[in-house]
Amino acid sequence: MTFVLGLTGSIGMGKSATADLFRRLGVPVHDADATVHKLYHGRAAPLIEKAFPGTVAGGAVDRAKLGAMVLGNQERMKQLEAIVHPLVREEEESFLQRVSALSSIAVLDIPLLFETAGETRCDAVLAVTAPASVQRDRVMARPGMTDEKFRAILAKQMPDADKRARAHFLVDTSRGFASAEAQVRSILACLAGRPGWRHRF
């Protein structure tokens, strides 16, 4: 039975780079953000257009138009999540079924894992972390990022300290690529040596 490791981390913590490390080491990874992108260009588009007219063009969701319609509106955001989240879960389940015979470990890369109770679908959780100063420098270097946007994003995410307290494993990405890879290898070795691991949640 495939061991499901949830991967999460706040913006700028290095989660995507850590997910790539798992892929390089042969571990299949399901990327929730990439799945949403695919759905916005596929089967979610007509459902979103029906709920939010004018947000789809050329068969794909216009994220800017959708964002203008739902951001800051809790009711509309919940309406959008009610459309998208079940579709993401279906894709996730399909992924796990495909890899079950191929790998003893699979990673679910979910940015808002704890915020959406995603830990209940995992056997263990890895939180990617870095000092707040490093996080801020990384995020503010992104094109179009402002202090206001950064604060708004952080407000939607569980504090890093809480994620670290709830996770089974941590990867500190502030010490360079080689260190992060060594930490990932150590986690995989730990999981490989503990076949009796069970849900903590």
Results as ranks from 00 to 15, higher is better:
Phe3Asp: 10
Val4Cys: 09
Leu5Arg: 03
Leu5Tyr: 00
Thr8Gln: 01
Gly9Lys: 04
Gly9Asn: 01
Ser10Tyr: 03
Gly12Phe: 00
Gly12Tyr: 00
Gly14Tyr: 03
Thr18Ala: 13
Ala19Asn: 09
Phe22His: 05
Phe22Thr: 09
Arg24Met: 06
Leu25Ala: 04
Leu25His: 11
Gly26Thr: 03
Val27Thr: 09
Val29Met: 04
Val29Trp: 00
Asp33Cys: 10
Val36Ser: 08
His37Lys: 15
Pro46Met: 06
Ile48Thr: 00
Pro53Glu: 15
Pro53His: 14
Val56Trp: 06
Gly59Gln: 06
Val61Phe: 02
Val61Cys: 02
Arg63Asp: 07
Met69Phe: 11
Asn73Trp: 03
Gln74Cys: 07
Met77Ala: 13
Lys78Val: 12
Gln79Arg: 15
Leu80Arg: 06
Ala82Met: 08
Val84Arg: 01
His85Asn: 01
His85Pro: 00
Leu87Phe: 02
Glu90Thr: 14
Glu90Cys: 08
Glu92Ser: 13
Glu92Met: 14
Glu93Ile: 10
Ser94Cys: 13
Ser94Leu: 14
Gln97Val: 14
Ser103Thr: 13
Ser103Trp: 11
Ile105Trp: 06
Val107His: 02
Leu113Glu: 04
Phe114Glu: 05
Phe114Ser: 05
Phe114Ile: 03
Glu119Thr: 06
Thr120Cys: 09
Thr120Glu: 13
Asp123Cys: 04
Leu126Thr: 04
Leu126Trp: 07
Ala127Asn: 10
Ala127Ser: 15
Val128His: 02
Pro131Thr: 13
Pro131Met: 12
Ser133Phe: 08
Val134Lys: 10
Val134Arg: 11
Gln135Glu: 11
Asp137Ile: 11
Asp137Tyr: 08
Val139Glu: 04
Val139Met: 06
Met140His: 11
Pro143Lys: 09
Pro143Glu: 11
Gly144Arg: 11
Met145Asn: 05
Met145Leu: 06
Met145Val: 07
Gln157Asn: 05
Gln157His: 07
Met158Leu: 11
Pro159Gly: 01
Pro159Ser: 01
Asp162His: 10
Arg164Lys: 13
Arg164Trp: 00
Ala165Arg: 15
Ala165Cys: 07
Ala167Trp: 00
Ala167Thr: 11
Ala167Asp: 10
His168Pro: 03
Phe169Glu: 11
Val171Phe: 04
Val171His: 04
Val171Leu: 09
Asp172Pro: 07
Ser174Glu: 10
Gly176Arg: 03
Ala178Trp: 08
Ala180Thr: 15
Gln183Asn: 10
Val184Thr: 14
Val184Arg: 13
Val184Trp: 09
Ser186Thr: 14
Ile187Glu: 08
Ile187Arg: 04
Leu188Val: 05
Ala189Pro: 08
Ala189Cys: 11
Cys190Ala: 15
Pro195Ile: 07
Arg198Val: 14
Arg198Asn: 14
His199Gln: 15
Arg200Gly: 14
Phe201Gln: 12
